[in-house]
């Protein structure tokens, strides 16, 4: 009973938050709603006995990624409303309805193969974090290391891209662009 209530509560909250993200005109609202939605999603993870992922979700998404977005937004003018002229609304919403219908149909349909063999079966009486640790450092060691390298590369790339000509003013860039355009 408690699980049902939790699921529906979290579901309603997540949907609400994400709808705000999608619909809001204010970038700050959207970001805050996104952060909230992330935290509620971690609730699902706890419900599903995936404590490790739940923690990771809070730490990485709500902590790291949202912080990154927050820092990123300092560069942009966020106080102003985001003016968005959405073109051809009809198409967009038709697509939305269609895709939602299809996805729901597919996911609600009885799964094609019910005889799924567990690759890495969960073991009774062993904590989730311990199991993930075991699998991660045995079967998924190489992908894990690759993911680490990927993160490192992404970090360096982010620094390099964002810090390029950090000290120069926007106008100079504009002039340069103008020169380039003229020379074409």
């Amino acid at each position: 009973m408690y699980e049902v209530i939790a699921f529906y509560l979290f579901a309603a909250l997540t949907i609400a938050m994400f709808t705000i993200v999608v619909m809001s005109k204010n970038a700050l609202y959207a970001m805050s709603a996104l952060a909230g939605g992330m935290i509620f999603i971690s609730g699902f993870f706890f419900l599903l006995d995936a404590e490790f992922l739940g923690v990771v979700q809070i730490v990485v998404y709500s902590g790291a990624i949202m912080a990154l977005y927050a820092f990123g937004m300092m560069f942009f003018d966020t106080t102003r409303d985001v003016s968005e002229k959405m073109r051809s609304k009809k198409i967009a919403y038709t697509l939305f309805v269609l895709s939602a219908a299809l996805i729901v149909i597919i996911l609600c349909a009885p799964l094609a193969s019910s005889s799924v063999q567990a690759n890495f079966p969960t073991v009774e009486h062993v904590g989730n974090v311990q199991m993930i640790g075991l699998v991660l450092f045995t079967k998924y060691l190489i992908p894990f290391e690759l993911a680490a390298i990927m993160l490192l590369v992404a970090m360096i790339a982010g620094i390099v891209l964002a810090s390029k000509k950090m000290d120069e003013h926007l106008n100079i860039e504009d002039e340069e662009l103008g020169n380039v355009k003229e020379s074409r």
């Binding site: 567990a118 969960t122 790339a157």
Partner: peptide, 30 residues
């Protein structure tokens, strides 16, 4: 299904999302 692979995938997806945000934001700022 009592299978850990799903959680592993989710984990890696989070890793990919993190790197995507880092690079994407860098490009965006540029």
């Amino acid at each position: 299904y009592g299978d850990l692979s799903g959680q592993m995938f989710a984990f890696f997806i989070i890793a990919v999302a993190a790197s995507e945000v880092a690079v994407g934001l860098g490009l965006l700022i540029l």
